[in-house]
Design a protein around this nucleic acid. Structure first.
Lengths: 364, 364
DNA sequence: TCAATAACCTAATACGTATTAACGAAACTT
DNA sequence: AAGTTTCGTTAATACGTATTAGGTTATTGA
């Protein structure tokens, strides 16, 4: 019907016009852009507009298919609605069992509930190069605030953030004063485990901890020692550290020494526990038949080498990881909104009765 | 000293400034904000600045710990080096086994390798409320581009993005024309599994698929049907859908019908597989002794109810999830940089020999 | 020495929305 | 009728960065 020779010079975005702005609505409704903003978003400002004006603006907005530009909204709000999540390892670990995973679940849940998005900083994914660490940590300022997460944390880049008043929260207890964190009360929970073993009749116990000085390990050691003292366990030689050596030999020595129960801890790698259960299996022992076994912390997924003859869970306590994630998000938002008053929480751990501890059975 | 009636209007952030701006750098270096912008980001504009000026600006930026504001950067119509990741379910599933997890690993790896940060958009974590979905999807514009991920995806909010030319990539095959995706070649891989069963001698087989119409399921069904036709399997009654009913009864019926092998699929919930293995266990059957069992897709972690007598993996094929994640990031960056030419990839699936299929053993 | 060129930098503006101070008009007081 | 409130709206500005046109000074050419 129409002549095909001269198609109209098609503009780059042919479908209707580009995205409508508030100013387009304003023109259509015969008001100013400010009025449009007030009608559309100004419920909180206390300004009241004439019903007729509201109606005109709303119908014009509907007509044009207006949707607010989230980027501009956030710019104007001087908040970007994004919380940083910086893990001092890859956020999604591959080689390591997902021991921290529940924390991420909690963080995501609470962030979603609060309408915040998360920026995953990928800085630490590559080499453990300290300079790149510093640069990566600095990027964190792109967010309104940041969560830090990981067993080992470089101090200097963080101190800088702290001095500048940038809001951030550690997940895990920290020693540094004036820094906010959400942690788990490992001390009490560990003491309770020691006391539980004592109540069953154990006297000579070993606690095998990771050979580094993360606060989480320090706290557990302190709890075990406190609990041992308070409940009558022997404290001499109570604590040993992993050393990469032969766990089976260590286990044999313990049996020779008359040890009836072993406590170990679960950390990011799960090395202590998996080494121990493997050694128990190779030695042909069973829990709690030959040896009581307690674990300080939630085991990551299913252990690679299940404890032989083990029906239920490993006795000890569980870490409220998900709740830690949620609490950390809430605390961070408090910091961002409220004043600079640093606050911290220690969450209680849940005792796990489990099936790996029982009355002592002296070996050999 | 001062009268208490009129406290000076205390600025909200008294202690220094949390986040340095370009204007702060400009003041420190004795130049204009525009110069700072040119030094920091203007490599492409052709404007050349005196080396001495560059130096001053860069050192002032370093000194103050400047980090560009991603939102402002985006508003000014530029890239901010951030890729969005939007999942139409929680990114970190809790009740569901982590079947999608490897995809996220791949996404994070490749993003880190490309120097991009990830923004996790949390919109879909709550109720499947369509309006909140729309608002949440809109937010992804804060990133340079976005990956969408999930078995079920609302179309309308996405169409909007597409019309506006916002770059995004689906992880998983999509029907919509002109949309980029990275998927797995379920059709070929599923056909190969059917052919494998036929080659072992099976003739009467059942394929139990999820009862919804996600592309992933549609593709697998098509592949199984194609493969069955091509290899001589019976095609009548081949395909059945999960219905929430009694899987054990269904299994018994199949045995009565002379079915010697069952194929099922792994999806986000893993429901089909776990229901089936549980039914096999309760029926006292073993694989492949009594019944051959094949699985289309990588099982999520360890199945809750392991197949009795199963030593190795479940036969079938594996989905190259990690590589899909990586490929999606690369494709997205292509879209962001290059033109709007939508491109897509189908990655090949890896056959898994496994230990659950063998020659047919007619039941009863 | 004066104009032409180059080198370097900045003022101005755009992006789209939120907020506040202020203004005109209408409705009340006395 | 002049002054006071109240109401409804808008002008102006801020948020932080990118970009472009243009201005200032230094350098060169004749």
């Amino acid at each position: 019907m129409s002549d095909t020779a001269s198609p109209p010079p098609t503009p780059p975005r042919p479908a209707g016009r580009a995205k409508p702005r508030q100013s387009d609505i304003a023109r259509a409704a015969g008001v100013s852009q400010a009025t449009v903003s007030l009608v559309l978003r100004g419920a909180a400002t206390g300004v009241v507009l004439a019903p007729e004006t509201r109606r005109r603006v709303l119908s014009a907005a509907e007509e044009l298919g207006y949707v607010p530009d989230p980027v501009a909204t956030r710019l104007a709000a001087a908040r970007n609605g994004m919380l940083g999540l910086y893990t001092f390892s890859t956020t999604f670990p591959t080689d390591v069992a997902h021991s921290y995973y529940p924390v991420l679940v909690g963080v995501e849940e609470e962030a979603a509930a609060q309408g915040q998005d998360l920026i995953l900083f990928t800085g630490a994914s590559r080499a453990a190069d300290p300079t790149s660490d510093a640069a990566a940590v600095r990027r964190v300022r792109a967010a309104d605030g940041c969560l830090f997460f990981g067993r080992h944390v470089p101090r200097d880049p963080i101190r800088r953030l702290s001095e500048d008043g940038f809001p951030f929260v550690y997940i895990g207890r920290r020693e540094e004063p004036g820094i906010s964190y959400v942690g788990a009360d490992y001390v009490s929970a560990s003491a309770e485990v020691a006391a539980r073993l004592a109540a069953l009749g154990h006297r000579r116990v070993r606690y095998l901890r990771e050979n580094d000085d993360a606060p989480a390990s320090t706290d557990r050691e302190r709890g075990v020692a406190d609990g041992a003292r308070g409940s009558g366990l022997e404290t001499d030689g109570l604590v040993e550290r992993t050393d990469g050596g032969d766990v089976e030999a260590r286990l044999a020595r313990w049996r020779d020494e008359g040890v009836t129960a072993v406590i170990t801890e679960e950390t990011d790698t799960g090395a202590a526990l998996s080494g121990l259960t493997a050694a128990v299996a190779r030695a042909g022992l069973s829990c709690p038949g030959d040896l009581s076994l307690a674990l300080l912390g939630t085991p990551a997924a299913a252990p690679a080498a299940p404890v032989p003859g083990l029906a239920g869970a490993i006795s000890g306590f569980g870490v409220p990881m998900r709740e830690m994630g949620r609490a950390a998000v809430r605390l961070l938002l408090d910091l961002i909104e409220g004043g600079p008053a640093p606050r911290s929480h220690l969450l209680a751990c849940e005792p796990v009765a489990g099936a790996t501890i029982g009355p002592p059975h002296p070996g050999r």
